[in-house]
Amino acid sequence: MGSVCREDASLRYDADPHNPPSEVRSDALFREGLTQSGQTTYTPRLIALDLKEASTVSVYSWCNSATIWEYRDNSTDQSQAAADSYFPPYSLEEFTWEDLNRTLNHSALTAQLCGRNQSQHRGRVCFQISAFESWGRDPAWPRLLHSANSSQLRFVIEGVMPRSNCSRFALELLSIDSRDHEAREETHRSIDDEYTPSIFQVSQLVSVHVNSSAPVLSYAQWKPVAYRTASPVFEDSTPCRHSPSSPPLPPPRLGLALAFFGGALDQGYRASAVNISFGIPGEPFYNATGYLSWSCLLGLGSPPEDSFSPLVLGIMVVGLGTPALLLLVGGAYVCVRRLGRQQPGYAPIN
């Protein structure tokens, strides 16, 4: 796989009628923004790579976070926040984003993209991106199981000024799939919480063929937990909830979606969305720490499935095997004792 770094040379603000169109569509792939020093620049909407033998690569689905919701949670037993408790949403297309090259780490395959809303003079929203070369787990909670066909996206809200004394946030996870595919929300439960303490389930949004039992094409997978500090301990975790996947919708005409799909967006694709809220009644609000992080795994093919680790298997063997061994040894001992008490020869009848 190789990348072509020709964007800077191809960026231009004014179309020149005497020159052919640039190979980089500036208005589609980038948006005008401001640097931290106040200079006008283009902010990337799409990060693309040239792939060797690109004809063998198929795009199954497109997943994006377009909107951040903030709402006032003054309830104690509501399963959903009231409609009038929501503030105007933060649209990520209206953010001014920092230079991704500052945080791009080619050896660790990580990058961090941070942006600010014009209405917020302090605080930021960040997306930390990690790619992987093999199977493994991220060292930070929730320690999602990943493969070489997946990447991890960590969503972080840091220092954003809340608009109420009991604010919580929610994120819209948008999926755009081909019309012959459908997005399906699933929840799987487990009895093992070794890697993510107190969390016994995993949620995922998968793309599959319509009315087919064929394998999963792509997925977004997460555990229903977020963290209120950058270096969390167990007490810093907060549960998450997600809505059911929406019915198929016309795909929104977002700049990033148009840059990715082009003119085929309206004809050959449809969208679905899942809203993920962070925190439940009774848990501390965002105001307590001014920090929130949530991780999601994006990948092709079937999502990874957690299995019992050697440690858990060893505990199960000891816990279940020890009583069985004691029963076996005890039964053998009783049999031997009874045989030893029997008198040799014949016993008299009278």
Rank of each mutant, 00 (worst) to 15 (best):
Y227H: 14
L328C: 04
T196K: 01
G38Q: 09
F200Y: 15
F308Q: 01
Q201F: 03
L325S: 03
D180N: 15
A81D: 01
E186T: 03
L145A: 07
P197D: 04
A9H: 07
Y90F: 13
A347M: 00
T238N: 00
I68K: 03
A230F: 04
A214Y: 00
R137F: 12
R116L: 02
C166A: 14
G2N: 10
K223R: 15
L92Q: 05
M316R: 08
S147P: 02
D14E: 15
W141Y: 13
I176H: 06
L339A: 13
E98Y: 04
P281R: 07
G263P: 10
E133V: 10
Q152K: 14
H106C: 04
A220G: 12
I276K: 02
R228P: 00
R116Y: 00
S134E: 13
Q78R: 13
Y71P: 09
K223W: 08
L49R: 12
S164R: 12
S58T: 15
Y13L: 15
D99N: 12
V317H: 06
F95L: 13
L313C: 13
G340I: 01
D99I: 08
N287M: 00
S79H: 09
R25I: 12
S147E: 11
T76M: 10
F278L: 14
A183Q: 13
H18R: 09
W69G: 06
D50G: 05
S245R: 14
G268I: 02
G268C: 13
P304G: 05
S55M: 07
R124E: 11
W222T: 05
V312K: 10
W69D: 15
T103F: 03
Y71W: 06
N165V: 12
D16T: 03
